[in-house]
């Protein structure tokens, strides 16, 4: 990895509503050009907040952001006005978890993609529309010409998801943030979209952060996987190793809870307990109350995220230590 495209340093995000929730706690990671990072983790662990913060989508009023984000040398947290508009959707764009959030229900999808292109480039309406149609074809929306004039609610869940990928890629971003882009798709279309993302990523050399709960899907596209728990990254490994040799007890639990054909007829092995209240995080390791390997130290001291080669781990009593495998 030469100079990384994206550098995130000690990023913390707090929401100040009725209660103060620390959604991200000193998250640090880097992403190289041309690299695909898979982000796994507990529901509510801060994956979407990470992506939304990268895109500066949180209202400044109720959100407190600390730390540093750099994309291609730009200080993202300092961007304002036109520069921010160009950054959003131009340099970095996002495929959302819920398609309802990306499309405006009152305009056709073709028009929305066309306008997204025109907002970032000086290009006439006709060429922008032609490119929008091309994008719909590229993500393999059947009868793309007809769907161009469809309203979002007229598309099935899967087609809306493809349309959103088309929208996200329309301005040729350097960094694509994909928040569970294939959760709404059937297995055959999912694999098509994963292959498509892989192909587009290779062709364009864009970097991708791919959030998913589907470890199988992450394995298909990611080079590296980071695992989040309670607003922190607890483990990072190259994809080919993490599935076979998880180090953090949470990662191990997550893999063990994944449903496979062998589980029929028996209860699944869910990790016991529930995640901590982000308004009152425990002083030590956030996973300690649910961890089978817990010790006094875990309850008292927060384990730092230690890096070695291409791996990182935050745990006092890992299933496998970092040195062991190195």
């Amino acid at each position: 990895m030469t100079t990384p495209l994206l550098t995130v340093r000690d990023l913390s995000v707090q929401f100040h509503g009725n209660r103060v929730a620390s959604a991200l706690n000193q998250v640090s990671f880097e992403l190289g050009q041309d690299e695909v990072l898979g982000l796994l983790g507990e529901s509510g662990s801060g994956k979407s907040v990470t992506l939304r913060t990268l895109l500066r989508l949180h209202p400044a009023r109720s959100t407190r952001i600390q730390g540093e984000i750099r994309v291609g040398g730009q200080d993202v947290l300092a961007l304002k006005g036109r520069a921010l508009d160009l950054y959003r959707g131009g340099t970095v764009s996002m495929v959302f978890q819920e398609p309802g959030l990306a499309f405006d229900p009152v305009y056709t999808i073709g028009r929305q993609i066309t306008e997204a292109i025109r907002a970032h480039e000086s290009i006439d309406a006709r060429s922008a529309a032609a490119r929008a149609l091309q994008m719909l074809e590229m993500v393999q929306i059947p009868q793309a010409r007809r769907r161009f004039d469809a309203y979002p609610h007229e598309l099935s869940g899967g087609m809306r998801q493809r349309a959103m990928i088309a929208l996200a890629l329309a301005c040729k971003p350097k960094l694509l943030l994909a928040d569970e882009p294939t959760t709404a798709l059937d297995a055959t279309v999912q694999i098509q979209i994963l292959l498509l993302l892989r192909e587009l990523q290779r062709e364009t050399g864009m970097s991708v952060i791919f959030v998913t709960h589907d470890i199988g899907a992450a394995v298909e596209v990611a080079d590296r996987i980071a695992v989040m728990y309670a607003g922190r990254i607890v483990e990072q490994q190259p994809v080919d190793r993490i599935v076979h040799t998880p180090r953090h007890p949470y990662t191990e639990g997550l893999l063990a809870a994944t449903v496979g054909p062998e589980h029929r007829g028996q209860p699944l092995r869910a990790i016991p307990g529930s995640p901590p209240d982000l308004a009152a995080l425990p002083p030590g390791c956030s996973f300690a109350p649910r961890c089978a390997y817990v010790s006094e130290q875990c309850r008292r001291d927060r384990p730092p995220l230690l890096a070695a080669d291409d791996q990182a781990l935050a745990c006092w009593h890992p299933v496998r230590g970092l040195v062991e495998a190195a």
Binding site: L40, E42, E180, G253, L254, A257, V259, L268, A270, I271
Partner: peptide
């Protein structure tokens, strides 16, 4: 209808149980 698709695998296991 796709009710457990958005859940992480551990929570999904809880909900399926």
């Amino acid at each position: 209808d796709e009710a457990v698709a958005a859940l992480d695998k551990s929570v999904q296991a809880q909900v399926l149980n």
